[in-house]
Simulated scan of single mutants.
Amino acid sequence: MRTDDTPRIVASVLDFAPTAFLARLALVGAYLAGGIAKLGDWPAAVAEQAHFGLAPPALWAALTIAVELVGPLLILSGRLVWLGAGMLGVFTFLAAVIANAFWAMPAGPERFAATNAFFEHMGLVGGFVLVAILARRGRRSA
């Protein structure tokens, strides 16, 4: 008797070796792209931090670039995944609180958009926790 109710086609996709890497790449791709873009346009990276009231903005821009590049590389490499996932999870949570403070906005379309963006970012935080859990479980069973 089968105890796994996963359809065969789904199981074959999930068991396909590159699927896990591609899923991690999909999760961290925007961070890599953001880090590379900020690195390529330092004045814009600094201006972005100043826009959100972070001082000194150059320090925050450098930290943002480091997190957006190092975190994904750790997750993709499979080494210190907990650290990479933690870096991106904390970064994403703080960015959502700073950039999407919907609770401080008057009702209207901007608040609606900020609310959606905030909770989408919380979903990413959950994804990073799951990445760390799965990496830990994978190491224990290896």
Rank of each mutant, 00 (worst) to 15 (best):
V129W: 06
G126F: 11
A95H: 04
V13G: 07
V28Q: 05
L32F: 06
A11V: 09
F118D: 07
A47T: 08
G123F: 05
A113W: 07
G126R: 06
S77Q: 08
E48S: 03
G84E: 01
P7V: 10
L27I: 15
V70L: 13
A95F: 03
R8M: 11
M105E: 15
G108D: 04
L59K: 00
F128V: 08
I9L: 15
A30V: 12
L76Q: 11
A44P: 01
M87P: 02
V70G: 00
L94K: 03
A107Y: 01
D41L: 01
R8V: 13
F93I: 06
G29I: 10
W42K: 10
D15C: 06
V81Q: 05
G84F: 00
P57E: 07
V10E: 15
N100D: 08
A117S: 12
P106Y: 01
V97T: 12
W82H: 14
M87T: 01
A113E: 14
A50R: 14
T92V: 04
L74K: 09
F91C: 03
Q49A: 13
G86Y: 03
L14P: 10
W103V: 14
L32K: 04
L94P: 05
L14E: 12
A55Y: 01
K38I: 00
L32P: 04
E110C: 01
P18H: 00
W42P: 13
I36R: 01
L54F: 08
A44R: 11
M122K: 00
A20W: 03
N116Y: 07
A62V: 15
R111L: 02
N100S: 10
A37V: 03
W60N: 10
A50M: 10
A11H: 09
K38F: 04
K38C: 04
L63R: 03
F112S: 10
I65Q: 00
Q49V: 00
A37C: 09
R24I: 05
G78S: 04
E68D: 08
R8C: 05
F118R: 06
F112A: 15
F93V: 08
I133F: 13
V81D: 05
M122T: 06
A47Y: 11
D5T: 13
H51G: 11
L25Y: 11
W82T: 11
E68G: 04
A101W: 09
G78E: 05
L22M: 12
L83I: 15
L74R: 03
S12A: 14
M105Y: 05
A101F: 09
A11K: 13
G89A: 14
E68R: 00
R24P: 07
W60V: 07
I75P: 06
M105T: 01
P7H: 12
R111N: 11
E68S: 06
T115F: 15
G89C: 07
M122W: 01
V13R: 02
